[in-house]
Design a protein around this nucleic acid. Structure first.
Lengths: 301, 301
DNA sequence: AGTCTTCCATGAACGCCGTTCATGGAACGC
DNA sequence: GCGTTCCATGAACGGCGTTCATGGAAGACT
């Protein structure tokens, strides 16, 4: 293991302070030999000489000085951790019908859904929460009890136990690049963290023109701002490209572009409530924006 | 010994993330039993219950959440220590720098900052994470060890221990409403969750024309979509209104509109690294978008 | 109610690693 | 040359993290 243990950090700090293995050992209640071993182990783990040894004791190298500064910070944080563990604080929760959605579908589909809900169910109080569709995503929000219903992407292979997942739509991907650029595919890639589902990665691996990402950005609107300003190109789902900033152009990705399935996620119990059923009803009934098509019912999940 | 070893810290972080001993074990390549032992050892050492165990897995306690945040920071510092040990040029601006920002500043200011960074420090690899500026916001990301630098709103009264907070800009608010509406102030209010800082609430209470919110929305771009489609009006910070959708108009809020301070947040240790210093330098140097003005240096926080 | 599955808990065994003990090499002073 | 002080190194030992095996609790399903 390459991490230094807290005791090893203490040894380094003491040697730097005392300028002597022997004195450090005495200060720590250890033997000189143990200190020598510990320093050696630290140097091996970090791959650098931390102290110059001499007749007069030990002098920290430049690297040793920097490492010891960090070591002091770590030890202080470990101290704070003990203090934090002993404090106690309360918690909280609440909400009528809580919807978790990723940004582009919230911006492009949800307004129409909310309008219909307000018209048909004026006493319903929807709360919308935007979540990045990465890792646990909106399904995680539902699983964690933060949302009653999640609008999620689904790749048809991973079904989370205890949750209901129903695909509703399909959404394709396109290339975003600066307007008028003669060869957008030569630009650096501005990569978006949510481009990591199985539905994009397999297609991605077959494209030899896609360079290594130079900038990683977590938010799709920031990706689009960067692209519109000429920083690079990006491969994005179509909903995210609606209402894109000036300076940004969109082109197709060829005859078989990647696409992703989008649907809703809830728990069996919550999916039976009137509020959640009303939201689902409107999701099925609402006119779809450009970029979304109704998913085939035989998708089988 | 009462200090948690790095591997024990990793176990705590993984359990908090996965909400399951079994899943954390799989993620770390360990057995569930080892995870159980490690969590138990950690709890014993710290003298607190860090996770509530249940049928559905493990939920962090309040103390557990705080401890895990510190654990992430420790692990990050140990990582930096390895880098510092090998670095022959400690002031070289290279490697990852993790920036947390709220959406509108990320979209409107960060592209220019990232462009300058790419030009001056091509070996720097910025990672941007969008976080809602609500509750703990971007400062929470820094405190939790998820980010090296946060672009945050600051109200000048709450200083978080262990963090450095420096105001840089001031941002005013405006009224957003559907284009051509004869009396926008009579529309229902589409409230935005982030409109709850002390800098807006005191002004808010003096405005007798603002109705009770009928829709609460978490994401500002969704608020703007709803407003553009005639659902209601909204009171929003000016950066959020840049690049707004068609159908949306912006009017002033009178002679003394509310405004908020925006600046950077980091930890003392991270703020000294070359990468973070480079980002801060560019934040100060970059031309400001409409809606942002440089904050007065005598703001005193 | 009974059975199965999934969750975390616990004890014994084992191997790794930090520390001590013993010893040695190098440099310096007398 | 001898003594002292410095850090280095190897063997032995005990503590500790991890695995294996097993068990209890809770929930779902029949």
């Amino acid at each position: 293991m390459t991490d230094l243990a807290p005791q090893e950090l203490r040894v380094l700090v003491a040697v730097e302070r005392e300028r002597s293995f022997t004195a450090a050992a005495a200060a720590l209640g250890m033997t000189q030999s143990a200190v020598s071993h510990a320093v050696r182990a630290g140097e091996r783990k970090l791959g650098a000489v931390l102290f110059e040894r001499g007749r007069g004791g030990a002098t920290p190298t430049a690297a040793g000085t920097r490492v010891v500064a960090q070591a002091r910070q770590v030890l202080r944080l470990l101290e704070l951790m003990r203090a934090e563990a002993r404090e106690s604080e309360p918690d909280r929760v609440a909400g009528p019908v809580r919807i978790a959605a990723f940004r582009s579908i919230a911006a492009q589909l949800l307004p129409a859904v909310l309008a219909r809900l307000a018209e048909r169910h004026p006493e319903l109080s929807p709360q919308v929460r935007i979540v990045r569709e990465l890792g646990r995503g909106t399904a995680g929000e539902v699983a964690d009890g933060h949302a009653d219903l999640g609008l999620a992407t689904m790749d048809g292979t991973t079904t989370r136990p205890g949750l209901v997942a129903v695909p509703l739509f399909a959404e394709g991907y396109a290339l975003a690049h600066p307007v008028g650029h003669p060869a957008p595919r030569t630009l650096p890639l501005v990569d978006w963290d949510e481009n990591c589902g199985s539905y994009t990665r397999s297609w991605w691996k077959q494209q030899d023109w896609i360079p290594q990402a130079t900038i990683n950005v977590a938010d799709d609107t920031v990706v689009l701002s960067l692209v519109a300003q000429g920083i690079g190109m990006a491969i994005m789902p179509r909903l995210a490209l609606l209402g894109a900033p000036d300076g940004l152009a969109v082109t197709d990705l060829g005859p078989e572009p990647p696409s992703r399935l989008v649907g809703y996620v809830s728990t069996p119990a919550l999916a039976r409530t009137a509020a959640v059923r009303a939201v689902i009803r409107e999701l099925r009934a609402v006119p779809l924006p450009v970029g979304l098509t109704a998913a085939r019912p035989a998708a089988g999940s």
